Amino acid sequence: MNAPAQSLPAWMYTDQAFFERERATIFRTAWQVVCHLNDIPEAGDYQAFDFLGEKVLTVRGDDGEVRSFHNACRHRASRLADGNQGNCGHRIVCPYHAWSYGLDGRLANVPRWQGFDDLDKAEHGLKPIEQEIFLGFIFVRFESGLPSVAEMMAPYAAELAPHCPPDLIPQGRVTLRPRPVNWKNISDNYSDSLHIPVAHPGLTRLFGPTYGIEAAPWVDKMWGDITEAPSANWAERNYQALLPAFDHLEGRDQRRWNYYKLWPNVAFDVYPDQIDFMQFIPISPTETLIREIAYVRPDARREAKAARYLNWRINRQVNAEDTVLIKRVQDGMESSGYTSGPLGPSEVCLKSFAEKLTGLTGVTAEAAE
């Protein structure tokens, strides 16, 4: 009999040197979602995004094109745009020395009194960042290496497409939620199916026995169908009753919740009534920032608005339960009584994640033992 696969060892969730190795070997080439095209609909609209020391500025140009740049002036490195979002007009102006850039990134003007008469402006435009737009969502990465987002998401692109029409609009603003855990504990928990019937009674009432899980090469998928049997919980029961039909969806998608996790740290929660992304931004070996926002189709029906509110109520409870769970796991990772544990036959996503992580970092699970 073959021995069961093993989970990643505890030291990988606490070790500073390994965190730095992840930073260099995983996150430099990993695609990160910045926003949706409709977060920046007008010329000059921008989104700013910080990730492991990198600062990204994604802006809509006068020509309607969206471009991503390093959010740093080419003169003395000053951050150009402040906050998470805004509008910079038709020029990006550095608040330090007033160098200004066009929305296409070119250096447009340097104050004459500063004495840069011989400066080649063409050589000092904003530094671009590799960008890809997939189903309306804007992704960036800092080095090439992995396949494109479209290639990575290919197994599920067709089923995702109806949920991502061009008229998706943001529901509120980006929320940032700090968590005192390693980013992998959040990622593991997202793709873990065994804890659903144990720790999420609400999801268990909603899905019954329909919860499923599978691992594609670069994407994990989880799903559950909203059951007809009325829940004992009022928010769940009313969601079941009020969730309307949506013209852009067919068949089981009308009442299915789908979850997709794109390697290594971007997740999409896809519901009939809305879609959101959730990003696990590593800060340190034991600190992570969860970044998330929801998107909806324009829909004035009272039932649609009610369903979205109830969805939020239900998932607020799920998030509260997960917050406790991942902290328990992180606490255990720091104990000398735990090294690694066996993975059951259904834990296909955790096995796939561990294989990719050790393969890309070049560090085996036994390296520190």
Rank of each mutant, 00 (worst) to 15 (best):
A3H: 08
P4E: 11
Q16N: 08
A17G: 07
F19E: 05
E20S: 11
R21A: 14
F27E: 01
R28P: 05
V33G: 00
D50L: 06
E54V: 02
L57P: 06
D62A: 15
D63Q: 07
G64W: 06
E65I: 13
R67E: 11
R67P: 10
N71C: 03
N71P: 04
C73P: 07
A77Y: 12
R79I: 15
N84P: 10
G89W: 06
G89N: 06
H97F: 07
S100P: 08
Y101T: 01
R106D: 10
R106H: 13
L107D: 02
A108K: 10
N109H: 13
R112G: 12
P128V: 10
I129M: 07
Q131A: 12
I133M: 06
R141I: 07
R141F: 07
S144R: 15
M152I: 12
M153P: 09
M153H: 09
Y156A: 09
L168C: 07
I169W: 09
P170K: 08
Q171L: 15
L176D: 11
I186Q: 10
H195G: 01
H195W: 02
L203S: 04
L206T: 04
D225E: 14
N233W: 13
W234K: 05
W234A: 10
R237H: 07
R237P: 03
A241D: 06
F246E: 09
H248I: 12
G251D: 10
G251F: 06
D253N: 03
R255S: 13
R256D: 11
P264I: 13
P264W: 12
F280M: 09
F280S: 00
I281E: 06
P282A: 02
P282C: 01
P282W: 01
P285T: 03
E287F: 01
T288H: 04
R291A: 08
V296P: 00
V296L: 06
A300E: 15
R302V: 15
A304T: 15
N311C: 10
W312F: 14
I314L: 11
R316F: 15
D322V: 12
T323V: 07
S335M: 13
G337K: 02
G337C: 09
Y338G: 00
T339A: 04
G341E: 12
P345R: 07
L350K: 00
L350D: 04
K351S: 14
L360H: 13
A365K: 13
A368Q: 13
